[in-house]
Protein backbone atom coordinates (compact mmCIF):
# COMPACT_ATOMS: atom_id res chain seq x y z
CA UNK A 1 0.00 0.00 0.00
CA UNK A 2 1.24 3.47 -0.86
CA UNK A 3 0.63 6.03 1.83
CA UNK A 4 0.16 8.95 -0.47
CA UNK A 5 -2.58 11.56 -0.77
CA UNK A 6 -3.68 13.12 -4.02
CA UNK A 7 -3.43 16.90 -4.13
CA UNK A 8 -7.18 17.26 -3.54
CA UNK A 9 -7.06 14.93 -0.53
CA UNK A 10 -4.11 16.80 0.93
CA UNK A 11 -5.81 20.17 0.41
CA UNK A 12 -9.00 18.86 1.99
CA UNK A 13 -7.10 17.54 4.99
CA UNK A 14 -5.29 20.85 5.44
CA UNK A 15 -8.53 22.86 5.22
CA UNK A 16 -10.33 20.66 7.71
CA UNK A 17 -7.39 21.01 10.08
CA UNK A 18 -7.63 24.82 9.78
CA UNK A 19 -11.41 24.83 10.32
CA UNK A 20 -11.12 22.65 13.43
CA UNK A 21 -8.31 24.86 14.71
CA UNK A 22 -10.53 27.94 14.27
CA UNK A 23 -13.32 26.19 16.16
CA UNK A 24 -10.94 25.31 19.00
CA UNK A 25 -9.15 28.64 19.26
CA UNK A 26 -12.07 31.08 18.99
CA UNK A 27 -15.16 31.49 21.09
CA UNK A 28 -17.65 32.64 18.50
CA UNK A 29 -16.61 32.00 14.90
CA UNK A 30 -18.85 32.25 11.87
CA UNK A 31 -18.60 31.45 8.16
CA UNK A 32 -18.65 34.38 5.77
CA UNK A 33 -21.10 33.07 3.23
CA UNK A 34 -21.43 34.91 -0.06
CA UNK A 35 -23.28 32.25 -2.01
CA UNK A 36 -20.28 31.89 -4.29
CA UNK A 37 -18.58 28.56 -4.99
CA UNK A 38 -15.64 29.21 -2.64
CA UNK A 39 -17.76 29.89 0.43
CA UNK A 40 -19.94 26.91 -0.53
CA UNK A 41 -16.83 24.71 -0.53
CA UNK A 42 -15.75 26.12 2.86
CA UNK A 43 -19.21 25.33 4.23
CA UNK A 44 -19.04 21.81 2.80
CA UNK A 45 -15.62 21.28 4.42
CA UNK A 46 -16.93 22.59 7.76
CA UNK A 47 -19.80 20.11 7.64
CA UNK A 48 -17.32 17.27 7.02
CA UNK A 49 -14.96 18.50 9.74
CA UNK A 50 -17.56 18.03 12.48
CA UNK A 51 -19.61 15.11 11.20
CA UNK A 52 -21.69 13.47 12.55
CA UNK A 53 -22.32 16.53 14.74
CA UNK A 54 -24.01 19.54 13.21
CA UNK A 55 -21.92 22.33 11.72
CA UNK A 56 -20.99 24.46 14.75
CA UNK A 57 -20.84 27.81 12.93
CA UNK A 58 -23.60 30.18 11.87
CA UNK A 59 -23.41 31.46 8.29
CA UNK A 60 -23.08 35.21 7.94
CA UNK A 61 -24.23 36.81 4.71
CA UNK A 62 -23.82 40.44 3.76
CA UNK A 63 -26.84 41.35 1.69
CA UNK A 64 -25.96 44.29 -0.53
CA UNK A 65 -29.49 44.51 -1.87
CA UNK A 66 -27.95 43.94 -5.28
CA UNK A 67 -27.86 40.17 -5.08
CA UNK A 68 -28.86 37.66 -7.66
CA UNK A 69 -32.16 36.12 -6.60
CA UNK A 70 -30.68 32.70 -7.42
CA UNK A 71 -27.96 33.27 -4.81
CA UNK A 72 -30.46 34.18 -2.09
CA UNK A 73 -32.66 31.17 -2.88
CA UNK A 74 -29.65 28.89 -2.83
CA UNK A 75 -28.51 30.33 0.50
CA UNK A 76 -31.90 29.86 2.17
CA UNK A 77 -32.18 26.34 0.85
CA UNK A 78 -28.72 25.34 2.05
CA UNK A 79 -29.21 26.79 5.52
CA UNK A 80 -32.48 24.91 5.84
CA UNK A 81 -30.91 21.65 4.73
CA UNK A 82 -27.99 21.94 7.16
CA UNK A 83 -30.07 23.21 10.05
CA UNK A 84 -27.58 26.03 10.46
CA UNK A 85 -28.22 29.52 11.78
CA UNK A 86 -28.15 32.38 9.26
CA UNK A 87 -27.09 35.92 10.18
CA UNK A 88 -27.72 38.59 7.57
CA UNK A 89 -26.21 42.09 7.54
CA UNK A 90 -27.98 44.53 5.21
CA UNK A 91 -26.01 47.20 3.38
CA UNK A 92 -29.30 49.09 3.03
CA UNK A 93 -29.42 49.38 6.85
CA UNK A 94 -25.92 50.85 6.89
CA UNK A 95 -26.98 53.37 4.25
CA UNK A 96 -30.20 54.25 6.12
CA UNK A 97 -28.26 54.74 9.34
CA UNK A 98 -25.86 57.07 7.57
CA UNK A 99 -22.93 54.73 8.24
CA UNK A 100 -22.01 54.76 4.60
CA UNK A 101 -22.99 56.85 1.58
CA UNK A 102 -24.45 55.21 -1.49
CA UNK A 103 -22.06 55.54 -4.41
CA UNK A 104 -23.35 57.52 -7.35
CA UNK A 105 -22.28 57.78 -10.94
CA UNK A 106 -22.15 55.34 -13.80
CA UNK A 107 -19.86 52.87 -12.01
CA UNK A 108 -21.70 52.97 -8.68
CA UNK A 109 -21.76 49.72 -6.76
CA UNK A 110 -22.19 48.63 -3.19
CA UNK A 111 -19.04 46.57 -3.20
CA UNK A 112 -17.05 48.95 -1.05
CA UNK A 113 -19.98 49.85 1.21
CA UNK A 114 -20.32 46.23 2.28
CA UNK A 115 -17.06 46.39 4.25
CA UNK A 116 -18.81 48.72 6.73
CA UNK A 117 -21.82 46.42 7.04
CA UNK A 118 -19.52 43.42 7.39
CA UNK A 119 -17.58 44.97 10.27
CA UNK A 120 -20.78 46.22 11.95
CA UNK A 121 -22.34 42.75 11.71
CA UNK A 122 -19.22 41.11 13.13
CA UNK A 123 -19.28 43.56 16.03
CA UNK A 124 -23.03 43.33 16.67
CA UNK A 125 -22.87 39.52 16.84
CA UNK A 126 -19.60 39.51 18.79
CA UNK A 127 -18.00 37.20 16.24
CA UNK A 128 -14.30 36.83 17.01
CA UNK A 129 -13.44 34.97 13.82
CA UNK A 130 -14.95 34.89 10.36
CA UNK A 131 -14.05 31.98 8.08
CA UNK A 132 -13.89 33.03 4.45
CA UNK A 133 -13.35 31.44 1.07
CA UNK A 134 -10.55 33.71 -0.15
CA UNK A 135 -7.76 31.96 -2.04
CA UNK A 136 -4.18 33.14 -2.47
CA UNK A 137 -4.17 32.48 -6.20
CA UNK A 138 -7.03 34.91 -6.80
CA UNK A 139 -5.26 38.20 -6.52
CA UNK A 140 -1.80 39.48 -5.61
CA UNK A 141 -2.75 41.11 -2.30
CA UNK A 142 -4.41 37.84 -1.29
CA UNK A 143 -1.18 35.97 -2.09
CA UNK A 144 0.25 37.47 1.10
CA UNK A 145 -2.59 36.39 3.37
CA UNK A 146 -2.17 34.11 6.35
CA UNK A 147 -4.51 31.24 7.25
CA UNK A 148 -5.21 33.07 10.51
CA UNK A 149 -5.28 36.73 9.56
CA UNK A 150 -5.40 39.30 12.33
CA UNK A 151 -7.71 42.34 12.21
CA UNK A 152 -7.24 45.26 14.59
CA UNK A 153 -10.02 46.85 16.64
CA UNK A 154 -11.06 48.86 13.56
CA UNK A 155 -11.30 45.67 11.53
CA UNK A 156 -8.31 46.65 9.44
CA UNK A 157 -5.67 44.46 7.88
CA UNK A 158 -2.06 45.53 8.22
CA UNK A 159 -0.16 43.62 5.55
CA UNK A 160 3.21 44.94 6.68
CA UNK A 161 2.81 43.68 10.19
CA UNK A 162 1.49 40.16 9.86
CA UNK A 163 2.40 37.42 12.26
CA UNK A 164 4.73 34.86 10.76
CA UNK A 165 2.88 31.57 10.23
CA UNK A 166 5.09 28.54 10.81
CA UNK A 167 4.37 24.85 10.20
CA UNK A 168 0.72 24.34 11.02
CA UNK A 169 0.86 26.21 14.30
CA UNK A 170 -1.69 29.00 14.21
CA UNK A 171 -1.66 31.91 16.61
CA UNK A 172 -5.21 33.18 17.14
CA UNK A 173 -4.46 35.27 20.22
CA UNK A 174 -6.03 38.70 20.26
CA UNK A 175 -7.07 41.65 22.39
CA UNK A 176 -10.70 42.38 23.14
CA UNK A 177 -12.38 44.03 20.15
CA UNK A 178 -9.99 42.53 17.63
CA UNK A 179 -10.95 39.65 15.41
CA UNK A 180 -9.55 37.17 12.91
CA UNK A 181 -10.32 36.24 9.37
CA UNK A 182 -9.60 32.58 8.76
CA UNK A 183 -9.00 31.29 5.24
CA UNK A 184 -9.13 27.48 5.17
CA UNK A 185 -8.83 27.18 1.38
CA UNK A 186 -5.87 29.58 1.02
CA UNK A 187 -3.87 27.01 -0.93
CA UNK A 188 -6.57 25.98 -3.41
CA UNK A 189 -6.68 27.21 -6.97
CA UNK A 190 -9.76 27.82 -9.08
CA UNK A 191 -9.26 24.48 -10.81
CA UNK A 192 -8.85 22.65 -7.48
CA UNK A 193 -12.19 24.07 -6.37
CA UNK A 194 -13.97 22.84 -9.47
CA UNK A 195 -12.37 19.40 -9.34
CA UNK A 196 -13.37 19.10 -5.71
CA UNK A 197 -16.94 20.19 -6.43
CA UNK A 198 -17.11 17.42 -9.02
CA UNK A 199 -15.46 14.84 -6.76
CA UNK A 200 -17.77 15.61 -3.85
CA UNK A 201 -20.82 16.28 -5.97
CA UNK A 202 -21.44 19.66 -4.32
CA UNK A 203 -24.54 21.57 -5.33
CA UNK A 204 -24.03 25.08 -6.79
CA UNK A 205 -26.26 28.00 -7.77
CA UNK A 206 -27.44 27.62 -11.36
CA UNK A 207 -25.65 30.86 -12.27
CA UNK A 208 -22.37 28.97 -12.58
CA UNK A 209 -23.69 26.99 -15.51
CA UNK A 210 -24.44 28.25 -18.99
CA UNK A 211 -27.95 29.63 -19.36
CA UNK A 212 -29.89 32.13 -21.40
CA UNK A 213 -30.02 35.62 -19.85
CA UNK A 214 -30.69 39.24 -20.71
CA UNK A 215 -27.28 40.87 -20.80
CA UNK A 216 -25.59 44.15 -21.57
CA UNK A 217 -22.13 44.44 -23.10
CA UNK A 218 -20.13 47.15 -21.40
CA UNK A 219 -16.66 47.46 -22.85
CA UNK A 220 -15.10 44.01 -22.56
CA UNK A 221 -17.45 43.01 -19.77
CA UNK A 222 -20.81 41.24 -20.06
CA UNK A 223 -23.21 42.25 -17.27
CA UNK A 224 -26.53 40.75 -16.37
CA UNK A 225 -29.34 43.17 -17.18
CA UNK A 226 -31.47 44.26 -14.23
CA UNK A 227 -33.36 47.40 -13.17
CA UNK A 228 -30.23 48.31 -11.14
CA UNK A 229 -28.29 48.80 -14.34
CA UNK A 230 -28.63 52.13 -16.13
CA UNK A 231 -28.04 51.72 -19.81
CA UNK A 232 -25.48 54.05 -21.31
CA UNK A 233 -25.74 55.57 -24.77
CA UNK A 234 -25.12 52.90 -27.37
CA UNK A 235 -25.81 50.03 -24.99
CA UNK A 236 -28.67 47.66 -25.46
CA UNK A 237 -30.08 44.55 -23.84
CA UNK A 238 -29.49 41.33 -25.68
CA UNK A 239 -30.25 37.71 -24.93
CA UNK A 240 -27.03 35.72 -24.54
CA UNK A 241 -25.89 32.25 -23.51
CA UNK A 242 -23.57 32.87 -20.56
CA UNK A 243 -22.35 31.68 -17.21
CA UNK A 244 -20.62 33.35 -14.27
CA UNK A 245 -17.09 32.48 -13.23
CA UNK A 246 -17.27 34.41 -9.97
CA UNK A 247 -20.36 35.67 -8.19
CA UNK A 248 -20.53 39.07 -6.58
CA UNK A 249 -23.20 41.71 -6.91
CA UNK A 250 -25.43 41.88 -9.94
CA UNK A 251 -23.87 45.20 -10.87
CA UNK A 252 -20.25 44.03 -10.95
CA UNK A 253 -20.16 40.34 -11.81
CA UNK A 254 -19.05 39.92 -15.37
CA UNK A 255 -20.35 36.91 -17.21
CA UNK A 256 -18.59 34.91 -19.88
CA UNK A 257 -20.11 33.57 -23.06
CA UNK A 258 -20.27 29.85 -22.49
CA UNK A 259 -22.01 26.66 -23.43
CA UNK A 260 -20.80 24.71 -20.39
CA UNK A 261 -23.88 23.29 -18.73
CA UNK A 262 -22.24 20.47 -16.75
CA UNK A 263 -19.43 20.40 -14.18
CA UNK A 264 -17.23 18.48 -16.60
CA UNK A 265 -17.70 21.14 -19.24
CA UNK A 266 -17.01 23.92 -16.76
CA UNK A 267 -13.76 22.24 -15.67
CA UNK A 268 -12.74 21.90 -19.28
CA UNK A 269 -13.30 25.65 -19.72
CA UNK A 270 -11.41 26.53 -16.55
CA UNK A 271 -8.49 24.29 -17.47
CA UNK A 272 -7.95 26.02 -20.79
CA UNK A 273 -9.02 29.54 -19.77
CA UNK A 274 -6.75 32.35 -20.94
CA UNK A 275 -8.29 35.08 -18.76
CA UNK A 276 -7.84 35.38 -15.00
CA UNK A 277 -10.79 34.39 -12.83
CA UNK A 278 -11.44 37.86 -11.46
CA UNK A 279 -10.50 39.50 -14.76
CA UNK A 280 -14.06 40.60 -15.36
CA UNK A 281 -14.85 41.71 -11.84
CA UNK A 282 -15.44 45.45 -12.10
CA UNK A 283 -14.42 45.84 -8.45
CA UNK A 284 -10.84 44.72 -9.15
CA UNK A 285 -10.37 47.00 -12.12
CA UNK A 286 -10.12 50.31 -10.23
CA UNK A 287 -6.34 50.27 -9.91
CA UNK A 288 -3.45 47.91 -9.40
CA UNK A 289 -4.04 47.96 -5.64
CA UNK A 290 -7.89 47.90 -5.56
CA UNK A 291 -7.99 44.66 -3.59
CA UNK A 292 -5.22 45.66 -1.18
CA UNK A 293 -6.91 49.01 -0.44
CA UNK A 294 -10.28 47.38 0.21
CA UNK A 295 -8.74 44.63 2.31
CA UNK A 296 -7.01 47.18 4.52
CA UNK A 297 -10.43 48.76 5.17
CA UNK A 298 -11.90 45.45 6.27
CA UNK A 299 -13.17 44.03 2.99
CA UNK A 300 -13.29 40.31 2.80
Amino acid sequence: MKYRLSHLEELESESIYVIREAFAQFENPCILFSGGKDSIVVTHLAVKAFAPAKIPFPLMHIDTGHNFQETLDFRDNLVKKMGARLVVGYVQDSIDQGRVAEETGPNASRNRAQSVTLLDTIEANKFDAALGGARRDEEKARAKERFFSHRDEFGQWNPKHQRPELWNLFNGKKQIGEHFRVFPISNWTELDIWQYILKENIELPSLYFAHQRDCVKRGDIILSYSPLLTLRPGEHVEEMFIRFRTLGDLTISGAIASTATTLEEVIMEVAIADQAERGNRADDQGSESSMEDRKREGYF
Binding site: K140, A141, K144, K160, E288
Partner: peptide, 19 residues
Amino acid sequence: DGLKDEREQGITIDVAYRY
Protein backbone atom coordinates in the same frame (compact mmCIF):
# COMPACT_ATOMS: atom_id res chain seq x y z
CA ASP B 1 5.20 41.81 -6.20
CA GLY B 2 1.91 41.81 -4.33
CA LEU B 3 1.71 44.91 -2.20
CA LYS B 4 1.73 48.58 -3.13
CA ASP B 5 4.85 49.30 -1.08
CA GLU B 6 6.63 46.43 -2.78
CA ARG B 7 5.88 47.76 -6.22
CA GLU B 8 6.85 51.29 -5.23
CA GLN B 9 10.10 50.26 -3.62
CA GLY B 10 10.85 47.45 -6.06
CA ILE B 11 11.39 44.98 -3.23
CA THR B 12 9.56 42.02 -1.77
CA ILE B 13 8.58 42.46 1.88
CA ASP B 14 6.66 39.38 2.82
CA VAL B 15 6.37 35.72 1.92
CA ALA B 16 4.04 35.31 -1.05
CA TYR B 17 2.51 32.06 -2.15
CA ARG B 18 2.28 31.08 -5.82
CA TYR B 19 0.55 28.18 -7.48
